[in-house]
Amino acid sequence: MLRPMTEADLPEVMAIEQATFPLDAWSEGMMRGELAEMPRTRHYVVALVDGEIVAYAGLAAAADQADVQTIAVLERHQGAGIGSAMLTALLAEAGRRGAREIFLEVRADNPRAQAVYRHFGFEEIGTRRRYYDDGTDAIMMRRGLGD
């Protein structure tokens, strides 16, 4: 089940953030800043399994452009379609907000995530060298909405 993220979710969300992105996790302050922009320019959701938050995702949207800010799924729940369900929800929200295209960055060393994004119609448009804190490159991807 997906629902909007709230500040009350932050302890569980931050634990997932640390577990999923140990080398470049966002701080709680950064996440609070994102939530402070809901619903104006941000849309964050959490995914629950048996009442436990097991994943979260976020979108930034302004004018006719949107960006997937983050998607994180606890390792033991990966491969169950949760990430795809959240990405589907983000794409739908971007469309509701009038976005004509959506962008994201994905780690160059994460072929599994890259494959998911390609499955959803994202195409590689460039590379951001040493984008992540540990020096890993980011692959920039784009998808038109309505494509």
Rank of each mutant, 00 (worst) to 15 (best):
G33R: 02
A55Q: 12
D50R: 11
W26Y: 15
I16K: 09
G58R: 10
D24N: 04
G29S: 09
V45S: 05
D67A: 07
A72F: 05
D50Q: 14
V49A: 13
V73C: 09
H77S: 02
F21C: 02
Q78G: 03
Q18H: 08
A60M: 13
R76K: 13
L2M: 11
M14Y: 03
T20A: 15
F21D: 00
A62T: 11
V45E: 13
Q65P: 02
V49C: 12
M14E: 09
H77A: 05
A61P: 01
E52F: 07
A15L: 09
I82Y: 09
A15G: 03
A19M: 10
R3D: 04
A8K: 15
E17S: 01
A8V: 10
L74M: 13
L74D: 14
Y56S: 13
V49P: 04
R76C: 04
A15Q: 10
R3T: 01
L10N: 02
R32C: 06
I53C: 15
A72L: 09
G33M: 04
V73Y: 11
D24I: 00
G33V: 03
G79K: 04
Y44M: 02
P22H: 09
V73N: 11
R40P: 00
R40E: 14
E17Q: 10
L10A: 00
M1L: 08
I16M: 12
G58F: 06
W26I: 04
F21G: 02
E17R: 00
L74G: 08
A19C: 08
V13N: 03
Y56D: 15
Q65C: 12
E34F: 12
A61K: 12
E28R: 12
W26H: 08
P11N: 02
G58M: 09
A61I: 14
E7W: 01
V13D: 09
E7Y: 03
E12C: 05
M5D: 04
A66L: 07
V46R: 06
I71M: 10
R32Q: 14
T20S: 15
G83N: 09
R32H: 10
D24V: 00
I53A: 15
